[in-house]
């Protein structure tokens, strides 16, 4: 997802302005010259300046589209894989406690391998062994309290 310089500069300047406005709204502290908003406001101003610089460069560019999607965006298989990647992280972030690490890891290891052309029986075997390995390493050896989820009471 590549923006041309004009669009990237515009986006940066807009975000810089939003940061500046939000920083100026932060409360000051009595008796202190520099409140909590000073530093982020400075970052906001510099972001606006950098964005303006990019926009100026962008104005000199001819024939560069504002937005160019990566080649794989037209490839259904690749888009599905990227969606699985992002979706899996989001699902664990949202429902990790309910699902539990071990069942989640087995499914994820299997799906990713299978999607990337590893035969299903082999992918399944590696997924189960790999997930158990992660569980033992983090759950037992490093004592990270991994959410048991569906395996509550079994682990």
């Amino acid at each position: 997802m590549r923006l041309n310089d004009l669009a990237l500069g515009g986006l940066s300047a807009t975000l810089g302005t939003a940061l500046l406005v939000a920083s100026l709204r932060l409360p000051g502290v009595r008796g202190q010259e520099f409140g909590a908003g000073f530093y982020p406001a400075l970052i906001g101003v510099l972001t606006i300046a950098a964005g303006a610089g990019l926009m100026l460069t962008g104005l000199r560019q001819r024939g560069v589209p504002a937005l160019r999607l990566p080649g794989w965006f037209t490839d259904g298989w690749a888009v599905a894989n990227a969606a699985i990647l992002a979706g899996a992280i989001a699902i664990f972030g949202a429902f990790g406690e309910t699902i539990g690490f071990l069942p989640f890891a087995v499914v994820l290891l299997f799906v990713i391998q299978w999607r990337l052309s590893i035969p299903a029986p082999r992918a399944a075997l590696i997924a189960v062994l790999g997930a158990i390995g992660f569980q033992l390493l983090f759950g037992k050896l490093l004592r990270v309290p991994l959410p048991p989820g569906l395996f509550e009471g079994l682990l």
């Binding site: 290891l109 990337l116 590893i118």
Partner: peptide, 14 residues
């Protein structure tokens, strides 16, 4: 590549 990607993803999450 599939095995590498799968293991890295789980390592990132955990």
């Amino acid at each position: 590549r599939g095995t590498i990607a799968a293991f890295i993803l789980v390592a990132c999450i955990i």
